[in-house]
């Protein structure tokens, strides 16, 4: 196993080739906020919350996707990055409709958590209040597009872990949204196995169990990492 040595916020770090900057930073106790990243799913760098500065490069790089390299000098928490992160969170809040008080995920929402971490007590960007639909066609679960932050965790878990590939991303720009099947009502997509993995990994209240009401969704996305590790080691029970 070859090793790369680099510096993260002044800590000297030695990591195996292929390790991401995010994993390396966490290894040495440097927190980097993330939203689209989830252990057990392929990285896509969709949310841009984990951007870091690398000396000598004018471009910010997503820590969740960038591998360590020899001699890298990385900064994860500069004033510029702090400002960008708060702006990213403000964009996520203002582009959809996040009415936390009446949300199924209130109090257990990763977007709320990140908002606290970046110090957002109000948004400097104006609220758009777009008209977005809610899909309640599935017998067990619902999808409220008002709360979707397009992290694509649902798309990836359904494709990569459940193998059903119910979800995709449709359209672009402000019309971009998660679609089921060929843009069908979720309940009409036969491929869905009703496993609920998408609901479990969704960081917000966008995907939810219909039995849950305000503040009752307590998802545990980290369970996915355990499932994927168990599979990799052949620890299935049957």
């Amino acid at each position: 196993m070859s090793v790369r040595t680099l510096s993260i916020n002044g800590h000297a770090v030695a990591m195996a080739t292929g390790t991401t900057l995010l994993a390396a930073a966490r290894e040495v106790g440097v927190p980097i906020p993330t939203l689209c990243h989830l252990e057990g799913l392929s990285p896509v760098a969709a949310c841009r919350l984990c951007l870091v500065e690398i000396e000598g490069s004018g471009k910010l790089q997503p820590a969740c996707l960038t591998p360590v390299a020899e001699g890298m000098v990385v900064h994860t928490d500069t004033p510029r990055l702090q400002d960008y992160r708060r702006t990213v969170i403000e964009m996520l809040f203002t582009e959809g409709n996040h009415v936390c008080a009446i949300c199924v995920a209130n109090g257990h929402c990763e977007l709320q958590d990140r908002a606290v971490e970046v110090g957002m007590d109000h948004s400097r960007l104006p609220y758009r209040h777009p008209d977005r639909p809610v899909d309640l066609s599935h017998p067990l679960f619902g999808l409220d597009h008002n709360r979707c932050i397009l992290c694509t965790r649902c798309v990836r878990v359904c494709d990569e872990v459940e193998g059903a590939h119910v979800w995709d991303v449709g359209w672009r720009g402000e019309h971009c949204r998660i679609i089921a099947g060929l843009n069908e009502p979720w309940g009409a997509v036969d491929a869905c196995t009703d496993c609920g993995k998408c609901v479990q990994v969704c960081p917000t209240g966008a995907l939810f169990d219909k039995a849950d009401t305000t503040g009752e969704k307590h998802a545990d996305p980290a369970r996915l990492g355990a499932l994927v590790r168990a599979r990799a080691r052949g620890q299935q029970t049957r």
Partner: peptide
Amino acid sequence: ITANVPGMRNRL
């Protein structure tokens, strides 16, 4: 701070 519940009418 956000228009919150009263702001839900803005989508109309």
